[in-house]
Amino acid sequence: MSTRLWMAILAQEEAEPSSNVSLVLPETNELIAGIVAFLIVFFFVWKWAMPAINRTLEARQKAITGKLEDAERAKNEAENLRKDYEQQIADARSKGNDLIEEARKAAEAMKADMIARAQAEAEGIVSKAREEAAQEKSRAMGEARREVANLSIDLAERVVGKNLDREAQLGLVDQYIAELERG
């Protein structure tokens, strides 16, 4: 693009630049624009922007505080729940231990009972058997004694050749056996 084109586009009447002193002095037109612009900005900031930012920051602060409180509360709840559960677990464990202990005791008692009963029964059976054996023995002894007496008398009758007074002889034999037993 040639400089002539720039000239053509932009050629404007240019006010003569003033002396260098005027550069450091405010120009009235610009001063008025500056004052008006500043006042507009200031009133906007004062009346709208500050309340807006305060509202926003307060809301954010409140929300964050609320969130933190919620979190704290949730944490406490969880902590309480945990304690509850731990308590329950401890309870259950001790209850379980009690149950096992009880069961063990019951089992032991039952075992002792059963052993005692079995022993008693065994003793009963043994004593009964012993009794029966004794009865049998005495019965056998009685029979044997009668047999021996009869045989002895039969033998004696044959030897003597006549009938003996059976009753008297039996008494004699018995007496004899008794003496044998005693002797």
């Binding site: 550069l23 002095l25 405010p26 120009e27 610009e30 624009a33 500056g34 500043f38």
Partner: peptide, 9 residues
């Protein structure tokens, strides 16, 4: 860079 605004402020 114009003195108006700095001076006024």
């Amino acid at each position: 860079s114009r003195m108006a605004l700095p001076a006024f402020l």
